[in-house]
């Protein structure tokens, strides 16, 4: 296949960026999207131009590093996958593909398509944990039975890979899906209930401070989330937050 790529190029955080057009040919439909970008980079490199920087690591959809806005959608047009799992057979010969970084004020661009998602980490520092010491003097694992239904829901919430696609897809650049996934995971487990009040208040405060937008329930995040994290989690967080606020 032959394609036209419109890629966001930006030298670093202090320079302005712009969309640059590239032509690329002989793409096999079996290639992954990132293999295609590797190929482009190899060509740029051979021409003496600087390759396009983009985040990636595991290339199997679990580390959450890859983060491209492809044709206006995070992780591209396919559902329930990350960019590294996207394959070129999704596109047609002659297509034009826009490739942009995930955009949010809380995700400033570092270079080209690489953004800084440390705001996510800071939200987790504010409360994304259960305060238990790691020295091993805990009770036996089976001393805390967990209802399977809750355990499964907690697991589903816990599968979030922290990619930020929810923010990228949201017209408000809201991080509600990401934050609510962590809040829900712990709120559903007996181990996590003890600190539930402080956790949700602290995490939401940090989320707001980072400058993410407000959720207006468009649902784009749920659809674009590669792990299918459910909007139920946002509702649960709203509940948790309001009851925590009322408790003080």
């Amino acid at each position: 296949m032959n394609l036209t790529l419109k890629i966001w190029r930006q030298k670093d955080a202090n320079h302005k960026g712009k969309i640059v057009n590239y032509k690329i040919s002989d793409i096999s439909p079996d290639m992954s999207f990132l293999d295609m970008l590797d190929m482009l980079n190899e060509q740029l490199n051979n021409k003496g131009e600087e390759p396009v920087s983009f985040d990636h690591d595991c290339r199997e959809g679990i580390c959450g590093s890859c983060s491209l806005q492809i044709n206006g959608e995070p992780h591209g047009p396919d559902r329930m996958i990350t960019t590294c799992q996207l394959h070129m057979r999704t596109f047609k010969d002659g297509d034009t593909i826009y490739i942009e970084p995930f955009r949010a004020k809380a995700f400033p661009v570092i270079k080209d398509l690489v953004v800084d998602r440390s705001s996510f980490d800071r939200i987790q520092h504010a409360g994304g944990f259960i305060s238990v010491n790691t020295s091993g003097n805990t009770i036996d694992a089976n001393a805390i039975p967990v209802n399977k239904h809750d355990a499964d829901k907690a697991f589903d919430a816990a599968t979030c890979i922290g990619c930020g696609a929810c923010v990228a897809a949201c017209k408000n650049a809201s991080a509600m899906l990401f934050v609510s996934a962590k809040v829900s995971q712990f709120a559903l487990l007996p181990q996590g209930k003890v600190e539930a009040t402080d956790r949700v208040l602290n995490m939401v405060r940090q989320m707001d401070e980072e400058g993410f937008g407000n959720c207006s329930n468009t649902g784009a995040c749920e659809i674009e989330c590669p792990k299918g994290i459910s909007l139920e989690n946002i509702a649960r967080m709203n509940r948790e937050y309001m009851s925590a606020s009322l408790k003080g």
Binding site: K6, W8, I19, Q69, N71, G72, E73, P77, Y98, E100, R103, A104, K105, A106, V109, A169, K171, N172, A173, S174, G211, F212, G213, N214, T218, G219, A220, I223, E224
Partner: peptide, 14 residues
């Protein structure tokens, strides 16, 4: 919350 907008944004897709 989004100070630079996308060149292409497919809101209708989701």
């Amino acid at each position: 919350a989004r100070n630079i907008s996308y060149a292409k944004f497919s809101g209708g897709a989701n």
